[in-house]
């Protein structure tokens, strides 16, 4: 269980996150809202990449606000970046091994890669560098989170760039993960098809939490566009 208490984050006098309080229990929670609303910042505050200006973050009752990225990772927080990082020289197998925290057998790696729709034989020894496409890097990023098997998994726009792979498969990944770990899966997304599978939807706009409820409560309002105006503006949100 993850708790945010009066979380604030200000950079150069600009309030990016404004007094957010929420409790995330086990389940499948989507975080949505317009671009620039603070979704990725919130994910980075949870993962420890940013330090909040004020407020608290608790993991299973323990205050982790001042813990490092490494400590939080060890306590069971995983974070799949929106923009996967490239590494000259490190292979897919190297990263899966580091993610799992133990030597990953070819068989284990193969199972994980096939979950994200990649053929292990072709990828396991590939370097995670610029020779891989954006979609391939994104799927490898997701595979690392699968390998970690942690209680809290945060995905930052996992659907971006996976055009060659179906949403159905991506949803299967989340379902399987949830069945296996029974943890909290937080997904930042604009996609209706992702929001449609969530148990709960949280809406962030201008750094504030403006709506938080079950899918059935929140999604219809979002689709009408009355709530967060997320289907106006620069991005084609909630559209396939």
């Amino acid at each position: 269980m993850l708790e945010l208490k009066n979380l604030c984050y200000t950079v150069d006098g600009k309030e990016i996150i404004k007094n957010i309080s929420a409790t995330f229990d086990d389940g499948f929670i989507a975080i949505t809202g317009p671009n620039g609303g603070g979704k990725s910042t919130l994910a980075k505050l949870i993962a420890g990449i940013y330090t909040p200006t004020s407020g608290q973050i608790l993991l299973n009752g323990e205050d982790i606000t001042n813990m490092s990225i490494t400590e939080r990772a060890k306590k069971g927080i995983s974070y799949a970046f929106q923009q996967p990082v490239k590494f000259k020289g490190l292979t897919v197998k190297d990263l899966l091994t580091l993610a799992a925290g133990k030597d990953t057998s070819v068989n284990d790696a193969c199972n994980i890669l096939s979950e994200v729709g990649l053929c292990a034989r072709d990828y396991i020894n590939r370097e995670v560098n610029g020779s891989l496409s954006g979609g391939e890097l994104k799927r490898i990023e997701i595979a690392m989170i699968i390998a970690r098997e942690t209680a809290i998994s945060i995905f930052d726009e996992p659907e971006a760039g996976i055009d060659l792979w179906s949403f159905k498969s991506l949803n299967k990944v989340f379902e399987k993960m949830h069945d296996k770990i029974n943890g909290t899966i937080l997904i930042i997304s604009h996609q209706e098809r992702i929001l449609n599978t969530a148990d709960r939807i949280v809406v962030l706009k201008n750094g504030e939490l403006i709506n938080d409820g079950s899918r059935d409560e929140v999604l219809p309002k979002l689709l009408e566009g009355t709530e967060a105006n997320i289907n106006t503006g620069s991005c084609s949100v909630l559209q396939d």
Partner: peptide
Amino acid sequence: VKLMTLGLSEAEAEEQIINGF
């Protein structure tokens, strides 16, 4: 940062990056 989110310390992350490179 990426390797630290996988549970490596900064020094361990640095070592992995250099060894790979």
